[in-house]
Computed example of a mutant assay.
Amino acid sequence: MADDRNRRRFTDPRTAAEAAFKAATTAKPAAPPSPPSAPRPAAVPGAREMVTLRLDSAVLAHFQKDGPGWQDRVNEALKALVPASDA
């Protein structure tokens, strides 16, 4: 009677585990090569670029104390330090 119950089991745990292992370890077919991308356009003169910049908290507080537009004020202060030939 116990043998009948085992035969009625639709999935064998060992077979299921082996199938899962085989699926996980079998090499997948290589993806087709992506189409060549268009070249990036040249930078627009005078355009701004998004960057991440680490500032001392005192420097940040100085520029933020006057409210919105603090990023423009930081940019103006940095531009004042750059020689005209580099800008």
Rank of each mutant, 00 (worst) to 15 (best):
P39H: 00
P45R: 14
P45L: 10
K28W: 02
S57H: 08
T26V: 04
D86F: 11
R40H: 03
K79N: 14
A87C: 10
M1P: 05
F10M: 12
A58E: 15
S37P: 00
M50L: 14
V59A: 11
W70V: 01
P36T: 11
A84Y: 11
D4H: 08
S57A: 13
P32E: 04
K22Q: 13
V44R: 00
R8L: 14
A19V: 05
V59K: 02
L78C: 09
S57V: 04
N6T: 03
T26E: 15
A47G: 08
K22C: 08
K22A: 11
A84N: 13
A31H: 01
R73N: 00
G67D: 11
D3A: 13
P36G: 04
D4R: 00
S85F: 13
R73W: 02
D86L: 12
D72C: 07
A2N: 13
T25N: 14
T52C: 02
W70I: 00
P41S: 07
A47K: 01
P39Q: 10
A43P: 03
E18N: 13
L78W: 15
H62Q: 03
A27H: 06
T25S: 10
A20V: 01
K28N: 06
A17E: 10
R40N: 01
D4K: 05
R54T: 12
S85R: 09
P13T: 07
W70T: 01
F21M: 10
D86M: 14
V74R: 00
A38D: 12
A61L: 05
N75W: 07
S85L: 04
R14P: 00
P83V: 05
G67K: 03
P83W: 08
A31T: 02
